[in-house]
């Protein structure tokens, strides 16, 4: 399942997409530590898979929280994710 966290407002689309099928296969979830803004957390979803999601308090601030990492070559979370489950809309 592709879970899209974030929002769309007048200034554009600001979504982080997590492929939960890929994410569930990963054991240690290094993306959580790799993120300098503490955007992620691990939880058990409605289908009893252990997956990563975007922290509720940060979900509506994706644009501003993730902007600094946009300037880097590769975002730390994308780099850390071995199955390649994380993608960004911006």
């Amino acid at each position: 399942m592709i879970a899209n966290y974030g929002y769309k407002d007048g200034s554009g689309d600001w979504f982080i997409s997590i492929d939960t099928d890929k994410c569930a296969k990963c054991e240690d979830k290094p993306c959580v530590e790799a993120c300098p803004r503490d955007m992620f957390y691990v939880f058990t979803d409605d289908w009893d898979d252990e997956v990563v999601g975007v922290v509720e308090e940060k979900r509506k601030k994706v644009k501003f929280e993730c902007m600094p990492c946009t300037k880097l070559e590769v975002r730390p979370c994308v780099k850390a994710c071995k199955p390649g489950a994380i993608t960004f809309s911006f």
Partner: peptide, 14 residues
């Protein structure tokens, strides 16, 4: 009826 992808927008009233 199992979800394969989703997106929710609840930040903006539009």
């Amino acid at each position: 009826g199992k979800v394969t992808s989703f997106l929710m927008n609840d930040k903006c009233a539009a």
